[in-house]
Amino acid sequence: MGQSMVDPTGNIVLSEPTRVTLAPGFYKIDYEVSALTMTPTFIQVTPFYNGAAHIEFGIYFMTAVERSSAFGAVSMIIEVPSATPFTLTFNTAGTVRECTLTMTIVKLRRSQS
């Protein structure tokens, strides 16, 4: 992953090339994945945070022919009760080329009531 903007508050930190560390709070996360498959296969992308995989926010698609394009997008709001790493696991049984990931993470503010 790469970072287009550093969070000046330190709540969202690209701590490793494949891992974002989130401080406690609520976050809106959008991500999309596109890929070109060279053989009939499946692709599964699963987010991992708060110590567990979250398949309910995952992307799964299957291609039935050679040289297929695949795309999936997810938008979610999550609660992070304590600092947690956020990662996306990419699984496939076939050959995938030209894969891209775009992800946006925004920390939500609580209203002052």
Score class of each variant (00 low, 15 high):
residue 102 T to M: 01
residue 20 V to W: 04
residue 57 F to C: 09
residue 90 F to C: 02
residue 41 T to D: 08
residue 58 G to M: 08
residue 11 N to Q: 12
residue 60 Y to D: 05
residue 71 F to A: 06
residue 104 T to A: 10
residue 71 F to D: 05
residue 26 F to M: 12
residue 111 S to P: 00
residue 97 R to T: 14
residue 22 L to G: 06
residue 21 T to W: 01
residue 27 Y to S: 07
residue 18 T to C: 02
residue 87 T to G: 08
residue 34 S to C: 06
residue 67 R to I: 11
residue 26 F to R: 15
residue 44 Q to L: 14
residue 3 Q to E: 15
residue 96 V to H: 03
residue 50 N to V: 05
residue 103 M to F: 02
residue 42 F to E: 08
residue 103 M to D: 01
residue 52 A to E: 10
residue 110 R to L: 15
residue 17 P to K: 04
residue 109 R to S: 14
residue 25 G to V: 10
residue 4 S to H: 02
residue 110 R to V: 09
residue 84 T to F: 00
residue 43 I to K: 02
residue 95 T to Y: 06
residue 113 S to P: 11
residue 66 E to N: 15
residue 101 L to T: 09
residue 58 G to F: 07
residue 50 N to Q: 06
residue 25 G to S: 13
residue 57 F to S: 15
residue 11 N to H: 14
residue 59 I to M: 04
residue 70 A to Y: 03
residue 48 F to N: 15
residue 33 V to A: 03
residue 41 T to P: 04
residue 27 Y to Q: 09
residue 22 L to P: 03
residue 6 V to H: 12
residue 89 T to Y: 12
residue 90 F to K: 04
residue 46 T to K: 06
residue 66 E to Y: 11
residue 59 I to V: 11
residue 51 G to N: 05
residue 54 H to P: 11
residue 4 S to Y: 03
residue 79 E to I: 02
residue 94 G to E: 04
residue 42 F to M: 04
residue 48 F to R: 14
residue 62 M to N: 10
residue 32 E to D: 14
residue 24 P to N: 05
residue 77 I to Q: 10
residue 14 L to T: 01
residue 52 A to T: 12
residue 62 M to V: 12
residue 110 R to K: 14
residue 7 D to G: 07
residue 65 V to H: 13
residue 67 R to F: 15
residue 48 F to V: 15
residue 32 E to H: 09
residue 31 Y to A: 04
residue 77 I to M: 10
residue 55 I to N: 13
residue 19 R to F: 00
residue 41 T to Y: 00
residue 80 V to K: 09
residue 14 L to H: 07
residue 37 T to Y: 05
residue 25 G to L: 12
residue 25 G to T: 12
residue 70 A to T: 07
residue 80 V to N: 08
residue 77 I to Y: 02
residue 68 S to Y: 09
residue 43 I to N: 06
residue 85 P to C: 00
residue 88 L to I: 07
residue 88 L to S: 05
residue 55 I to M: 09
residue 82 S to H: 03
residue 5 M to F: 12
residue 101 L to S: 03
residue 108 L to C: 09
residue 61 F to V: 00
residue 56 E to W: 05
residue 40 P to Q: 05
residue 53 A to V: 13
residue 111 S to N: 09
residue 6 V to C: 01
residue 28 K to P: 02
residue 37 T to N: 08
residue 75 S to V: 00
residue 92 T to M: 02
residue 60 Y to T: 09
residue 69 S to F: 12
residue 85 P to Y: 09
residue 57 F to V: 00
residue 80 V to Y: 07
residue 13 V to L: 11
residue 36 L to N: 15
residue 90 F to T: 01
residue 45 V to Q: 00
residue 10 G to C: 03
residue 72 G to P: 11
residue 70 A to S: 13
residue 107 K to V: 05
residue 36 L to F: 14
residue 77 I to E: 10
residue 96 V to T: 11
residue 3 Q to D: 13
residue 85 P to Q: 06
residue 3 Q to Y: 05
residue 85 P to M: 00
residue 67 R to A: 12
residue 53 A to M: 14
residue 92 T to L: 04
residue 56 E to R: 14
residue 47 P to V: 09
residue 110 R to M: 14
residue 98 E to A: 13
residue 29 I to Y: 06
residue 39 T to L: 11
residue 39 T to H: 09
residue 16 E to M: 11
